[in-house]
């Protein structure tokens, strides 16, 4: 691989750049989860849909309207119990026009059933840990090929998960941002999820969504909590 892979120094610089991008998204989300928990706790049990909207919407507006930002949509999803026993509440918006996602579900008394099986909701609720889902085709919100970063929200340390905050990052935006650095790492450098599925690849024969394997002798670099860069990858 030596002729198609950059020098160790160059690789360190550019993998570091991509790690900073993803870690930046994850850190922003963690800070938002903490702020949301504090604000919900301050409502001391009087949590309404309107109050949640007022809390979440300005942050989403800020996130999706950031020039050259990665976030296509973002929001909060209440766990059962916060607003009603079987009720969820979705305060999620997408696009510059801030389209309110899945708004009709908020009129359903059993709306929690709609989300409990979704990986992006289930995993942070069950584990109490941040999670990244995808890349996957998101039928609920964007109808795009996305990564969804989600983080549990707690009103008090050690308390129950009252909901999740999340951000949708389209693979398309990530490709625009990550491709130049990937190319400098190597002709076949590839950003992959934990399953080895390509998110962005410099190799012309590897498309987003393809399953890939690390090429023999390539270097592996962690990116954010879950992803890796392989300095060289092969299509499966």
């Amino acid at each position: 691989m030596s002729e198609t892979t950059a020098s160790t120094d160059t690789i360190t610089v550019h993998t570091g750049e991509l790690d900073a991008t993803i870690t930046g998204i994850e850190d922003r989300l963690a800070a938002w989860a903490a702020d949301t928990g504090t604000a919900l706790a301050a409502l001391s049990g009087r949590v309404t849909g309107t109050a949640v909207d007022k809390l979440i919407r300005p942050v989403v507006e800020d996130l999706v309207r950031t020039p050259d930002g990665y976030v296509a949509g973002a929001g909060f999803l209440a766990n059962a119990g916060l607003l009603g026993p079987e009720r969820s509440y979705i305060a999620w918006w997408q696009g510059e026009e801030l389209e309110h996602v899945d708004a009709l579900a908020n009129f359903s008394p059993n709306s929690i059933s709609r989300y409990v099986r979704s990986e992006w909701f289930r995993v942070p609720v069950e584990t109490g840990q941040a999670h990244v889902t995808g890349p996957y085709v998101d039928f609920l919100c964007t109808d795009e090929y996305v990564l969804t970063f989600t983080h549990p929200v707690f009103c008090r340390p050690g308390g129950p998960v009252v909901g999740i905050v999340g951000m949708d990052v389209t693979v398309q935006r990530l490709e625009r941002g990550a491709m130049p650095a990937l190319r400098r790492i190597g002709e076949r450098a590839t950003l992959v999820n934990p399953d080895g599925r390509a998110i962005v690849s410099a190799a012309p024969d590897i498309a987003a969504g393809d399953l890939t394997a690390a090429a023999e002798g390539c270097s592996v670099h962690p990116v954010g909590r879950k992803f890796r860069i392989w300095s060289g990858a092969t299509a499966l």
Binding site: H100, L104, S108, R114
Partner: peptide, 20 residues
């Protein structure tokens, strides 16, 4: 099955606000 028979829908104003 998200909305079921007999369930009340939001009024015009609420529906308009929710769906933008």
């Amino acid at each position: 099955g998200l909305l079921t028979s007999g369930q009340r829908l939001p009024n015009e104003t609420e529906l308009a606000a929710a769906l933008g």
